[in-house]
Design a protein around this nucleic acid. Structure first.
Lengths: 340, 340
DNA sequence: GTGAAAGCGCTAACAT
DNA sequence: ATGTTAGCGCTTTCAC
């Protein structure tokens, strides 16, 4: 029952093993230039003593922290949470940790936390957020500081960073095409926030699909949201108030789709029979909404994992240039849509 | 447009200010024993140069990391995500960071990440999870290592840790009492996972309320879930299959309540008219379910903030003993319940 | 009130 | 293949 607050250092291992500190260092770092028998003897002492190198000292000496910064918009949003989970799992497997940069902060405070992140000398930073123009400045600063950057959902620019995202345009195109094939011709849309790449790409998908079907665009059928349930609810009310007939809806995420369905219900409209609805994301509750929601699934966890993997690669090989990885989406059919 | 990868050290500040390194250290740490004018001169150089002390070196020298470990169950669960957001915001305000210990890992891997956490010499660890018995061993180990611990949702035991949670028993009691007052006497319940404190307390609340009303317990009315939508769906089916009549349901969280409502719908039963439903948590979609869900709100973010605050207090004053803080819940009325 | 010296535990660069 | 010497950038003694 002894408290083991005190911990074993590399020196104690070296003394016990009768070698120099350096040799122990080589062993624990898996360097090749140690004889098999020395390696084995040292390793045994390491195991016996339960020695674990002190990450801080290591980081200070090697100038490699094995720590990554995570700059997320809002962890309570399933999209970001799931991507974060994937990124963290991947990082852990490579011996890296993420420190939580910002979550749900007011915008004015963000620069402060970004600075704190650099103060910790994180080896790299992962932006898990729908990239708005406002973030460009943050990215610029980090880039200036020479810190490897990986983002999800950003417009590519002169700033060097790796991008990992879903094929938003494709996904949206497929969703709207599906509605079109069902015989719908007046298809409403509720978008994500303006100035965000995923919003832009999903709009494009919608436009392309309509254009391919020779259907003219009707601005009265488009509502603007901010990803939240409430904004979907309001946007749906707005579109209905516009007075233009529609028989289907494509929402830029599931939460807004669910909010819109709630608005539809409250007006006595039936989802599927009266209005077909398609969402985007495939959040867990999509399967249990009323009716279960047809939606475009994004590989959220995979996006996070890939982002973390690429980030670590760049940290460990600074000569690697930024890349762009777009992952496939998948239309998952449930019962919120009906043939016209 | 010069890359500023190189960074300013305390020595450069000292040289510029014409004082010793020590004096600079004193200034940046707000120590009292510096003359006002020296302090001012140093501070000015600090600002001019944009000097920020290097956290790693600080941690190594002072043996205080200002880093906390976060051991969460599943960030994609709103409960944990929201508590994490609160905890992180609080930590940031005190100059601490959280590193992400585990998220959605397989149980066998958890000890490994716990060890990694101790290797980083985190100053304290926050367990944001519904405490199951399996975690007891983890807590024991950290406790042995002398690391301050704060948990949400754990049974109190011999192990020393601070507990922050909602008043689960109260909340459940209020919910069931509400149903009782509406005239319901056969009230079904869908529980959280066995061996978890919040499940236990919410069950107790249910028992107490029924007992106070003189209504005998009927095991056929109780279903078992695991917090997920799907488990709520299945548990509802199971209870219905039991053949025992019921007119109301109390679910231990909103996701299971929404899953149960989906099961009800699929059997042609109407929520509210046929079965009144009360959930727990007040997740964002509760407001937009069909019908909007009456539920017990937990102050999730506040739980996280409080937990982080108490953790930091214990880190900074090791003589402080563990405490227990229980936060109030609130019944939020929407339209999933009707008078019997 | 201020400074000099001595580490914190480790790795890097150079020895041998 | 192994050891020695210098730090990494800061805080902590302990002087003055």
């Amino acid at each position: 029952m002894t408290s083991s607050r005190k911990h074993i250092t590399i020196k104690e291992v070296a003394d016990q093993a009768g070698v120099s500190i350096q040799t122990v260092s080589r062993v624990i770092n898996g360097r090749p230039d140690v004889s098999a028998e020395t390696r084995q003897r040292v390793q045994q002492i390491v195991d016996e003593l339960g020695f674990r190198p002190y990450a801080l000292a290591r980081g200070l000496a090697s100038r490699r922290n094995r720590t990554l910064g995570l700059f997320a918009t809002d962890l309570s949003d399933y999209f970001f949470a799931e991507a974060t989970v994937g990124a963290n799992a991947e990082a852990l497997e490579h011996g890296y940790f993420f420190i939580l940069g910002s979550t749900k902060l007011r915008r004015e405070e963000e620069p402060k936390y970004l600075q704190l992140l650099t103060e910790r000398h994180v080896d790299g930073v992962l932006f898990v957020r729908a990239g708005s123009e406002d973030d460009r400045e943050h990215l610029f600063h980090l880039n200036q500081a020479g810190i490897p950057l990986v983002t999800t959902g950003f417009q590519q620019t002169a700033i060097e960073f790796t991008l990992v995202d879903a094929k938003n345009l494709d996904g949206a195109f497929t969703a709207v095409k599906y509605l079109l094939d069902l015989g719908h011709t007046q298809i409403a849309m509720i978008t994500g926030p303006r100035g965000v790449k995923s919003t832009h790409d999903r709009e494009e998908g919608y436009y392309h699909a309509l254009a391919a079907a020779g259907i003219p665009l009707d601005p009265a059928l488009i509502g603007y949201g901010d990803w939240t349930h409430a904004s979907g609810y309001r946007a749906m009310q707005q579109i209905i108030a516009n007075g233009q007939l529609f028989t289907a809806l494509f929402a830029h995420n599931d939460r807004m789709a669910i909010g819109a369905m709630s608005a539809l219900h409250s007006l006595g409209l039936r989802v599927s029979q009266d209005v077909s609805v398609v969402g985007f994301d495939d959040i867990p509750e999509a399967e249990f909404s009323d009716p279960p929601l047809t939606t475009v699934r994004q590989p959220l966890e995979e996006i996070g994992r890939t982002a973390a993997r690429l980030l670590i690669q760049r940290v460990e090989n600074p000569q690697l240039g930024p890349v762009q990885v777009l992952l496939d989406t998948e239309l998952v059919l449930r019962s919120s849509c009906a043939r016209r």
